[in-house]
Amino acid sequence: MTDTAASAQVPLVNYLVLGDRPHLVANQCTNCGARFFDRRNACASCSGTSFEKVDIATEGEVRSFTIVTLAAPGVPVPFVAAVIDCGGTSVRANIINTPPDPDHVKLGMRVRLATYSLGTDDQGTEAIGFGFEPA
């Protein structure tokens, strides 16, 4: 093996595209334009079965958020859970790289996609997560 183990990366979810310009992709219904982040059997809006990949804007606006201070066992708190409006497509994500309090996280705040390491597994693969940080 010539590849160094450290170069192997895997995204937290399959709709996160890594590389020079990390971004999210959605499955867009070719009939009605509805967008979904998971694999689809059919469209929830029009029942169409044809989809194409579309890139999602990496900047957006916080449409809603909460600061979670009590979570299920094993989930580190506090964290900010939010809904981000990325150019008309809603995205579920955490707000990161800013203190998790209502003085620093505001409705309508401009944010941009950011990635971070979740750690390296036993095979040397690094998992990369994403969140949105103040723009």
């Binding site: 895997v10 995204p11 937290l12 979810v13 399959n14 709709y15 982040f37 998971d38 809603s64 958020f65 909460t66 979670v68 009590l70 979570a71 299920a72 989930v75 580190p76 708190v77 964290f79 859970a81 939010a82 809904v83 579920r92 994500a93 955490n94 979740l118 998992a127 997560g129 994403f130």
Partner: peptide
């Protein structure tokens, strides 16, 4: 979603208090 680890707390919250807070 092809997640490599549970996403609760990493991509938003699955629990009810935070869901209804939003």
């Amino acid at each position: 979603f092809g997640a490599v680890t549970p996403t609760d707390g990493r991509i938003g919250t699955d629990a009810m208090p935070g869901t209804f807070a939003q």
